[in-house]
Write a protein that binds this DNA or RNA. Structure first.
Lengths: 199, 199
DNA sequence: TAGTATAGAATGAACGTTCTATCTATTGAT
DNA sequence: ATCAATAGATAGAACGTTCATTCTATACTA
């Protein structure tokens, strides 16, 4: 997940992520990060300017990673429907493969602790933009209802996030077919005319 | 919002909510709460056992309030479709009327800082249960797709939350007709057969 | 022999909480 | 009606701890 960083930085970032998810930012002290990562506080400050910088770096790294991960499902060749399903499947897959990163972004994307420019850059560099384009394309082809694509993508992303949240909390199980049905429901929500069966 | 509390408690709860939204839990110190609420630290501890208790009390109070607010839209007489629209309209209305409370619950419902029993009680006492019942009813009547109603409600709630988030962040505007279209999309997503125009 | 990497103690500020003192309101006996 | 007496409400200083960060010393590497 943090391939662009050296060993020490990776240890710090991984540990910080784990502690923040387990115990809240509020309870994530430098001393604890040092102890659990096996890197002394002095050395942490050799590689990071401050605690804030660690958390913001973490945010940037995860968003970038997530963006690349989801885009692999989105940018494949195929019909709009195939790319639609491919994209959202990757979002779910991401949340299962990297639940801590997923949760972290979800929890802190609206936190004042993350610098505004970092959030801005994350939004533009992530997978939202390509997904918006796909929706726009579908709208142009009179396949989707004529609404703001940003709004539709946002709604569907919310559905996915809350599906994952519900599952993480043990409210329900989520097998492969449930996921397909869920994405299918999203597809139906925005389709203009009813036809085309799911693949 | 905090009618069941005395003046001092109300001042503390309101102030705490505002600061947490503005500056993060992490930066919400007792000294700051005292200063901004006009209640001395000594007196705060006369009414609350600890900082954790304040935040958890805040959580409980807001969830209860939200539950009652949304239920007013849900429990009215009418067809399933009318109650469906009525319920989700209230969710959006709530988020516009009390954005701080809405954001707070949204941000901290998965935080380890909120005690597990508090979250549990909140889930049962809120509006999720009645909404689940409505969906179950619709499924029984072969009006909705035969999926777990908890899952469907969770998805739709996610859509609403992210609509609100997108709007709060200024990604798009959300007029009355946009809201109707959004809820309509949710309705279409789970409907079994295509008919019945929106009211 | 530089220069970088690492460790851990030291530092001063800020934190949550407690302590002590003062103020206010209520009670009940005269 | 007046005045002690008592209990609760309020304020703010004090306390001990923990925090993020810095400093200093030592180890490693080239």
């Amino acid at each position: 997940m943090f391939e662009n960083y050296n060993k020490v930085q990776q240890a710090v970032l991984n540990t910080t992520l784990r502690i923040i998810i387990q115990k809240e930012l509020q309870a994530t002290s430098m001393a604890l990060i040092a102890k659990e990562s096996g890197v002394s506080t002095g050395n942490i400050y050799h590689y990071f300017k401050s605690k804030e910088e660690i958390v913001n770096e973490l945010y940037t790294a995860i968003v970038t990673f997530n963006g690349e991960y989801v885009s692999k499902g989105l940018n494949q060749e195929g019909t709009i429907q195939e790319r639609f399903f491919g994209g959202w499947e990757r979002v779910i897959e991401l949340s299962k493969q990297y639940p801590e990163g997923f949760q972290f972004i979800e929890q802190y994307s609206f936190s004042p602790y993350i610098y505004e420019p970092v959030k801005m850059k994350a939004y533009l560099g992530g997978w939202c933009a390509p997904m918006n384009l796909l929706y726009q394309e579908a709208i142009d082809q009179k396949l989707f209802v004529p609404m703001d694509p940003k709004l539709l993508v946002q709604m569907h992303y919310g559905s996915m996030v809350y599906l994952v949240k519900g599952q993480l909390h043990g409210n329900f199980e989520m097998g492969q077919d449930t996921i397909q049905n869920a994405i299918q429901a999203c597809w139906k929500a925005v389709m203009l005319k009813q036809e085309t069966k799911v693949p």
